[in-house]
Structure formats: structure tokens, C-alpha cells
Design a protein around this nucleic acid. Structure first.
Length: 230
DNA sequence: GACCAGGCACATC
DNA sequence: GATGTGCATGGT
């Protein structure tokens, strides 16, 4: 039998309270903004350290070239691919990352085979994704959660910043530590993880950018940061 | 013109 | 394991 501390209960209710507050303010986010699971995967790579508006341009380029599919992208000339994804920045690196991912994807048709997907344990799937050069923890988890609908919590720069400023996590917590914090304290639920992360991004974009001071935060009553950089 | 954006791999200590 | 660096465009 496991003992639970008071603070564990506090954190559980607090994380849900924060979620409800964000949900009330922003409404359901209906993520990920993409037409297909495959588009989610490509977007997840393209958005690495890049604003989503830049990714939209690249996605548009690929769509208008009728190239947003595994075969078309895999076969596309590298220089042409670079030209199309240029707006996302790091386009030389990202073009290689996409090619790496497509090689993996075509060899392991995870999305084309639901039976195989269902059989594959989450942790094993994650390991395989992380073995692809260019896929780190956030990209892997975004693919698992938003393309494959697996129950895993996505951590990003906004998550780290917001929850550190709230005083709930440490500034230099690792990805795995932060992910563990959320997954220990929230019910395991794909829909919740999906919208929770989307809410965090909405909050981050509007109120909690990487500046010394927050904007007027809709979470004021539960956010410990009173507008001063901690 | 500086600063930031839905990271990651790699080198070095 | 922690810390530093290159990668690059587009918006504010």
C-alpha cells in the first residue's frame, strides 16, 4: 500500500483546477490543427523551436504541391523539400529530419496498420520514435498523443515556463521529470492530455511569453507569479 | 535591429 | 549528468 502525502493531493487538485481555469477562459482548443495524422507528424517536426505561423506556410507549400503524403515526401528531391519548408527555419536540418522520419515511417507503417498500432505498447512505440534522428521527446510525444491518440503528456517550453513561474516545478527540471509530474498528478486520459497541452500553449502565447513579466494572467488567483520574474 | 518562437544533436567537461 | 553551441526564417 502506498502512502500519499498531503502535497500529492494538493498537486492533483491544483493541476485540475488550473486546467478548468484555462478551459473556461480559452474554450476547448480542438487540437492538433491538421487534417490527418500524417500531417500532425510532419507539423510536429517542422514546429521545432519555430512559431506555428511559419509552419503553416510550409504546410501550405507542401499541400499545394500535392506532396503532403509519405510517398510523395519520401521521393521529393531534397533541394525542393528544403525550398518548401524554408519558412520554418533550420530548413537544412529539418529536411534531413523529415527524410529520416519518412524512412522510418515507411518501414514501420504505424498508422497504416491499426492492429499493429494497438498491439504496440506505448513505451515501445516511444522508444522507436526516439531512435529516429531528429525526433526528440517533445516531438515523439506530440506524435504519440496527437497523431496516434496515445495517453502521454507533452511538455514544451511553455509548460516549463508557466509551471515554474507558478512555483509548481523547478526551473531546470528535465523533460522526463516534468512529464512525470503531470502524469502522476492527472488521470491517464488521452483527451485530457490533449487539451491540457493545447491550453498551456494558448496561455503561453497570450500571457506567458519569454519575457521578464507576464501579461495580465487569467489564472491570477492560482498563479504565484505576481508579474515579477522569479 | 534585437529578441523570440509549440527542439534537437553533438561536443566537451 | 550538466552546460554550451549551431541550426535560420519570420513576426513584433
Amino acid at each position: 500500500m502506498t502512502m500519499r502525502t498531503e502535497s500529492e493531493f494538493d498537486e492533483k487538485s491544483r493541476l485540475l483546477k488550473i486546467y478548468r481555469r484555462m478551459l473556461a477562459h480559452f474554450g476547448p482548443r480542438d487540437w492538433w490543427p491538421a487534417d490527418t495524422p500524417f500531417e500532425v507528424m510532419i507539423g510536429a517536426i517542422l514546429t521545432q523551436n519555430t512559431s506555428w505561423t511559419n509552419v503553416e506556410k510550409a504546410i501550405r507549400n507542401l499541400k499545394s504541391a500535392h506532396a503532403l503524403g509519405p510517398d510523395a515526401l519520401f521521393k521529393m528531391d531534397l533541394r525542393r523539400l528544403k525550398r518548401m519548408i524554408r519558412p520554418t527555419g533550420y530548413y537544412n536540418e529539418k529536411a534531413k529530419k523529415l527524410k529520416n522520419y519518412l524512412r522510418f515511417y515507411r518501414a514501420e507503417p504505424i498508422c497504416a496498420s491499426p492492429q499493429r498500432m494497438a498491439r504496440m505498447p506505448l513505451s515501445e512505440m516511444r522508444e522507436r520514435l526516439l531512435n529516429v534522428k531528429g525526433i526528440g521527446p517533445e516531438t515523439a510525444d506530440s506524435i504519440l498523443l496527437y497523431a496516434l491518440e496515445k495517453p502521454i503528456f507533452v511538455v514544451d517550453a511553455y509548460t516549463r515556463r508557466i509551471f515554474y513561474r507558478m512555483g509548481l516545478t523547478s526551473e531546470n527540471a528535465s523533460y522526463d521529470e516534468l512529464q512525470g509530474f503531470f502524469m502522476r498528478n492527472l488521470p491517464e486520459n488521452t483527451e485530457l492530455y490533449n487539451d491540457y497541452h493545447a491550453q498551456i500553449v494558448a496561455l503561453g502565447k497570450e500571457y506567458c511569453r519569454n519575457k521578464p513579466e507576464c501579461g495580465p494572467c487569467p489564472l491570477n488567483e492560482i498563479c504565484m507569479n505576481k508579474g515579477v520574474s522569479p
